[in-house]
Computed example of a mutant assay.
Amino acid sequence: MWIISRKFAEQFTRSEQLSAQLEPVNRGLEQQVEQRTRALREEQVQRLAFMANAFHDLRTPLFVVQGCLDRLESGAGTGGNLTGVMRDRLDFMRKLVEDMFLMAKLEEKQVIFDEDRVPLAPLAERVTDGLREAAVRQDVRLTLEVRDRCIAWGDDLRLEQALQNLVTNALHYTPPGGVVTVRLYAEGNEACLEVRDTGPGIPLDEQDKVFLRYYRTPGAKRQGSSGLGLSIARQIVLQHQGRITLDSRSGEGSAFTIRLPAVRRPGTE
């Protein structure tokens, strides 16, 4: 009887020890489940907000087009002016739908990227040259500074699209008389494309949200922007094993920097 009691006590002690060893593991698993549940809830909230914003931005141009058609039918407006307004709003809707489709494909890893050496200096020149007229219309000075002739590896077209989205975003937030500067330089083993503006800057508590789909900083203009440009740029850069960093302070402008693995030592041809 004494032997049985002793064995039972030993078994009970081992069970307590095992339970004590498993307790931190269980706590860790519970924390992981809580974190994942919280992340899923936040993702659901973001998706609902995205759909609501997308619905708003698709519906508003439709109302404008409908109003123009009503005026044309009633003879209250001239064809030239109204068709210009309708074309502008239809172009915006097309861009929004294209951005939504591309964003969905990027998130599902369904976009096929070409792989080749990409000289970033001519890429930056194409982007700044292509947006020069838009900058002039907004009375914003757009400049390019090439400090190092860096080369990255990836899809030339998609990387150009990512940079163009950053520059377009900077122009969108820079007031008349301001400056948007694109800089290409090397930093360590990274090729860096920086887009710096003299806009209002982004509050610190808003900076972790700027890459969310359809997010706009408080007071931002809705017209002309799909709200997906930064999200698309980030997805493109991430799938090139790169990253985008943000340096911004309220009232001091913002700097978004694409950082890509450099193919070879920057500065050499």
Rank of each mutant, 00 (worst) to 15 (best):
3 I>W: 09
4 I>E: 09
5 S>Q: 09
6 R>H: 11
6 R>P: 00
10 E>F: 14
14 R>F: 07
15 S>G: 06
17 Q>N: 10
20 A>W: 08
21 Q>R: 15
27 R>N: 04
28 G>E: 12
31 Q>R: 15
32 Q>F: 14
32 Q>D: 05
33 V>Q: 05
34 E>N: 13
35 Q>C: 00
35 Q>P: 04
35 Q>T: 07
39 A>T: 14
40 L>S: 05
40 L>A: 10
43 E>P: 00
44 Q>D: 09
46 Q>K: 14
49 A>D: 05
49 A>G: 07
51 M>I: 13
51 M>W: 05
52 A>V: 10
53 N>V: 13
55 F>G: 01
56 H>M: 11
56 H>P: 00
66 Q>C: 02
68 C>G: 12
70 D>G: 01
71 R>S: 10
72 L>G: 01
75 G>R: 00
76 A>C: 02
78 T>M: 09
80 G>M: 08
83 T>L: 15
84 G>E: 15
86 M>E: 01
89 R>L: 04
90 L>W: 05
91 D>M: 08
94 R>E: 15
97 V>K: 05
97 V>W: 03
99 D>W: 11
99 D>A: 15
103 M>V: 04
103 M>S: 10
108 E>V: 03
109 K>L: 08
110 Q>Y: 06
113 F>Q: 05
114 D>N: 10
114 D>G: 11
117 R>P: 00
119 P>W: 02
123 L>I: 11
123 L>Q: 07
125 E>V: 14
126 R>E: 09
127 V>E: 04
128 T>I: 07
133 E>G: 01
136 V>R: 03
137 R>T: 14
138 Q>A: 15
138 Q>R: 15
140 V>D: 01
140 V>N: 00
141 R>I: 08
143 T>N: 09
146 V>N: 04
148 D>V: 14
158 R>P: 01
159 L>A: 02
159 L>W: 03
161 Q>P: 01
161 Q>E: 13
163 L>M: 06
163 L>E: 02
174 T>C: 02
174 T>W: 02
178 G>N: 06
178 G>R: 04
182 V>F: 08
184 L>G: 02
184 L>A: 00
185 Y>R: 02
185 Y>I: 03
190 E>Q: 15
191 A>Q: 07
196 R>H: 06
198 T>S: 11
200 P>Q: 01
203 P>C: 11
204 L>Y: 07
206 E>Q: 14
206 E>W: 08
207 Q>P: 00
213 R>M: 09
213 R>G: 07
215 Y>M: 12
216 R>W: 06
222 R>H: 11
231 S>W: 08
231 S>Q: 07
235 Q>I: 03
239 Q>P: 02
240 H>W: 03
242 G>E: 02
243 R>K: 11
245 T>Q: 04
248 S>M: 00
249 R>W: 08
256 F>W: 15
262 A>R: 05
263 V>N: 09
263 V>S: 11
267 G>K: 13
